[in-house]
Design a protein around this nucleic acid. Sequence first.
DNA 1: ATGTGCATGTAACTGGTTACATGATTCG
DNA 2: CGAATCATGTAACCAGTTACATGCACAT
Lengths: 187, 187
Amino acid sequence: MPLQRASLRHFILGLLTQRPMSGYDIKRRLKSLSWLVGEPSFGSLYPALKALEKDGLVTMELENRENKPSRKLYNITEAGIQTLDEWISQPAGPNASLKAFVMRLILADNLSRSALIAQLYQRRAQIAAHRAALEDDTRWADDGADSVQRMALEYGLALANAELVWLDDALDRLLAQPQAVEVVQGD
Amino acid sequence: MPLQRASLRHFILGLLTQRPMSGYDIKRRLKSLSWLVGEPSFGSLYPALKALEKDGLVTMELENRENKPSRKLYNITEAGIQTLDEWISQPAGPNASLKAFVMRLILADNLSRSALIAQLYQRRAQIAAHRAALEDDTRWADDGADSVQRMALEYGLALANAELVWLDDALDRLLAQPQAVEVVQGD
DNA sequence: ATGTGCATGTAACTGGTTACATGATTCG
DNA sequence: CGAATCATGTAACCAGTTACATGCACAT
């Protein structure tokens, strides 16, 4: 199950914002998210880590533990954080898949609340446009198209509507929440 | 926007069951479906056609038209139909994406009503299992997980539910329809 | 004439996959 | 002692992409 276009590196960076991890750690973490974003193979994971290191977006340090095989712990660098930030703040392609969106959601959440909200708004606009397009298609397809194509259109509409409901809901809750961090100091 | 794993060839075969087409025709057709399945580039389309021809799944004949550039019309062969049939009748991977499913739906529809229904049932079972898994996750994630992961879970659940509703609806309508040909003999 | 659509292709690249290879540690 | 899990990697392959290249026909 592949991840989306050019995303594995970014996802790795996103995970490393939480804490330093080994390749194996990352695999385990991705596995727990696999229902959403898929699970990469070692054959892509380890090379990706090497590439990130070569590009200076992460650093590697060997962790030697007694009675356990040593392992490579990766840390994200400043440059890595910046790269991630740039990537997440540029809008997703208009045809971005569900998986790509969820991935961005998780990454955005690692960065900031405002990034998270931005992702939701962006997605909302895209899905709304998508639904409008589908509704157009439905109208002029009522006569000509074969039945399965109409079925597919309804399918797309049903999913778009469900997604919009969820997006509105999520945005409502997020915006209702107190700003969390930053403010608390007092207690 | 890529199509799913190893699917372009099959999708081409599926389109060719409707009528002979040129590479350009196929591109155009795929474009009109691009909101669902994505649109392949010529760089993959033409090589795919050549490969299909080499494997004997399609035949090519040059169509010379007056005052227009001649083009290559592709026809599906018996072997091609059989290959398509085999592919569609083997179950989709458990993590098959939405796009992959819609693609299979369209291809199944080209083959037979029963194949179409089979796809729907299959998908229904998979989504139901998926939903159950998500509900499990939601329960034990209520405490530990970070908020965005809970958001993602709800997102997945909302989509799964919407999809189940649509699937049931589609199945109802399909099964209510007259059988068209074949079965009517004795009831 | 110039751009748009029809029509076909190739070459270099990319981001993954599968299969293979190795080895330590832990648990039953 | 053997299996599962931890841990890291490489090589061959695959199905796509982008960018490039060509050329005809038709309309503005």
